[in-house]
Design a protein around this nucleic acid. Structure first.
Length: 427
RNA sequence: GGAGAGGUGGCGGAGUGGUCGAUCGCGCCUGACUUGAAAUCAGGUGAAUCCUUGCGGAUUCCGUGGGUUCAAAUCCCACCCUCUCCGCCA
């Protein structure tokens, strides 16, 4: 959520920055107008309230001083109090209504792109920052896509999972399940070593949590909702982990807070029919190790760079070729101020595919979730900055391992760093 | 799911209609005393919004939302959450 004060005081600057996401896509005019009305009402209402409080006190004093509750003097005050009550009953709903409208409009506005985010219209304009591991890119002759490898080895079952659930669900079997589990353990171990505190959060979350991290209200159709309850299946561990500290005031000395979490993620992938529909790339349920940071605003840019490096470290350890993209303003996620995507090399596609997305939300989520910190000895509070990134998506990593490590005899080598987890060298 | 108890400031814990944003204790901060610390003493110590150039002022917040009243932490209604016992269960 953007700071209403910032919009009020610098509307032109806010407009300019929002336009970087797409010219004219967002209009703050109504917010500015409603905010003006709301403040006028608030001033009026607060003055009435003040007089009403005064009357309340006066009546109390008079009665204590010996006047009868039904004496003329007291009755006159009561009458005035009743009058004010009538006028307040008019103003209050108006003000509340305005506030609700403003809130709804604010929740629908995306974050301002950071000054450093490259300006562009679409993913075409994303900027490649660096590439790693070209020497590990396999020869392209006779390569199979990962779903064929998985089926041949009998470690991924697509058809049976569809019977059990729906299309875009899979079942991992035997060594496939073990490899999935090994990847999870390996990534968690690495990230814990890098300083992240592991969490196993709830996999169902309420609407308030989804609103704080900004999946709601705009992207409701992307998540699975439990019909009987105000509970949703998490689309990413970002939601429960970020919301761990919702409505809290942290001590400055507690920052930074680093968490990692392995969770399954559930996404409806609405509107994605027919796209990337083979294999492990786009499923309704997938596993992910997520990194989440809560940091002091002055450090968040550096923390973001470090977060990306922590995600990259996994790909490097697995010797999977990848590149780092800096997303342009036109491709930037709703809540992000700045975002790097990691893309891993998928030989079957002959291209890089997203395997991690590392975003700095600055105070956007913190504002929505009311996550603040207090500086020692100083009055008031500030919003923390939140960041998160995949470290990494497990299913896509599995796909990348199967394809990049396949051998001409149809077997798949196990990356060295996973061998201790799997206790074997070949699939 | 049933019965009972309860939700007040960082913590503990008062407060059952009136000047209560809330006694008090602990914690924390500042100052005095001290070579320093402890102890002691004095003062201070929540958040948010609006008005104001500033000084400052006003309003809101005692789980949440309604209601009664001139006036609600306090009374009424609904809901949420926590604890204890029972039931059920991995």
């Amino acid at each position: 959520m953007l700071d209403l004060k910032l919009i009020r005081e610098n509307p032109e600057a806010v407009r300019e920055r929002l336009n970087r996401r797409g010219a004219g896509a967002y209009d703050i005019g109504p917010i500015v107008e409603l905010d003006k009305q709301q403040r006028e009402l608030e001033t009026k209402r607060s003055q009435l309230q003040s007089r009403s409080n005064e009357i309340g006190k006066l009546v109390g004093q008079k009665i204590k001083g010996g006047l009868k509750p039904d004496s003329v003097e007291v009755q006159a005050l009561k009458d005035e109090g009743n009058e004010i009550k009538v006028r307040l009953a008019e103003l209050e709903p108006q003000e509340r209504d305005l506030k609700t409208q403003i809130e709804a409009l604010l929740l629908a506005l995306p974050n301002l792109p950071a000054e450093s985010t490259p300006i562009g219209a679409s993913e075409e304009d994303n900027v490649e920052v660096r590439r790693w591991g070209d020497e590990y890119i396999p020869e392209s002759d006779g390569l199979l896509p990962h779903w064929e490898i998985g089926e041949k080895l009998g470690i991924i079952n697509f058809d049976r999972a569809v019977k059990v659930a729906q299309t875009r669900f899979i079942a991992m079997v035997g060594a496939g399940a073990a490899l999935e589990r090994a990847l999870i353990s390996f990534m968690l171990d690495r990230q814990i070593q890098a300083g992240y505190l592991e969490v196993i959060p709830p996999l169902l979350v309420n609407s308030e949590s989804l609103t704080a991290t900004s999946q709601l209200p705009k992207f409701a159709e992307e998540s699975f909702k439990c019909a009987e309850d105000d509970l949703w299946l998490i689309p990413t561990a970002e939601v429960p982990v970020t919301n761990l500290y919702r409505d809290e005031i942290l001590e400055e000395s507690q920052l930074p807070i680093y968490h990692c979490a392995y969770t399954p993620c559930f996404r409806r992938e609405a509107g994605a029919h027919g796209r990337d529909n083979r294999g492990l790339i786009r499923l309704h349920q997938f596993n992910k190790v997520e990194l989440v940071k809560f940091v002091h605003p002055s450090t968040s840019a550096q923390e973001h760079e470090n977060l990306v490096r922590d995600a990259e470290a996994i790909l490097q350890a697995l010797k999977l070729p990848y590149r780092v993209l800096e997303l342009c303003t036109g491709d930037l996620g709703f809540g992000a101020a700045k975002c790097y995507d990691l893309e891993v090399w998928l030989p079957s596609a002959g291209r890089y595919r997203e395997i991690s997305s590392c975003s700095n939300f600055e105070d956007f989520q913190a504002r929505r979730g009311n996550i603040r910190f207090k500086e020692a000895g100083k009055k008031g509070t500030k919003f923390v900055h939140t960041l998160n990134g995949s470290g990494l998506a497990i299913g896509r990593t599995m796909a990348a391992v199967l394809e990049n490590y396949q051998q001409s005899d149809g077997t798949v080598k196990i990356p060295e760093v996973l061998q201790p987890y799997l206790r074997r060298e070949i699939l």
